[in-house]
């Protein structure tokens, strides 16, 4: 180890400076860097809710309660949350998923989730 360090310390290698590619593109092939913006989350959450068969698409806004405003029941709520999980490739624990009852909460939860994509 000491020998290696000594050799390395005296090593001289001529270099050519490669053009710097910038931090964002360094891990361009990594699956963990596809962060999504809040606007994108809002768009996709609303489109999932609009596509739900029992929902009137014109009523869907970023701040709408599934049961009070859209006239759904609790089982429809479960189905919407599951559709959102599939849309964003998430796995939400049952207790937390149970609390998501409005588009506002869904957007908050998903945009703060590190693995949402």
């Amino acid at each position: 180890m000491a020998l290696r360090a000594a050799v390395l310390r005296h090593l001289r290698v001529p270099i050519q400076t490669a053009p710097w590619r910038g931090g964002a593109s360094l891990r361009s092939m990594s699956s963990h860097d596809d962060h999504i913006t809040k606007d994108e989350v809002i768009d996709r959450v609303l489109s999932v809710v609009r596509d739900f068969p029992k929902v009137d698409p014109s009523k869907v806004t970023p701040d709408v309660h599934f049961q009070k405003d859209l006239g759904l029941d609790s089982l429809d709520n479960v189905e919407i949350v599951m559709a959102l999980e599939e849309e964003f490739k998430l796995e939400i624990p049952d207790k937390e998923a149970d609390k998501i009852d409005s588009t506002h909460l869904a957007i908050e939860y998903i945009s703060n989730h590190p693995m949402a994509s």
Partner: peptide
């Protein structure tokens, strides 16, 4: 009971 039903439905649907 309502919570149990919701969670059961969620798990069963998955």
């Amino acid at each position: 009971q309502k919570e149990r039903v919701r969670i059961l439905y969620r798990r069963a649907l998955k």
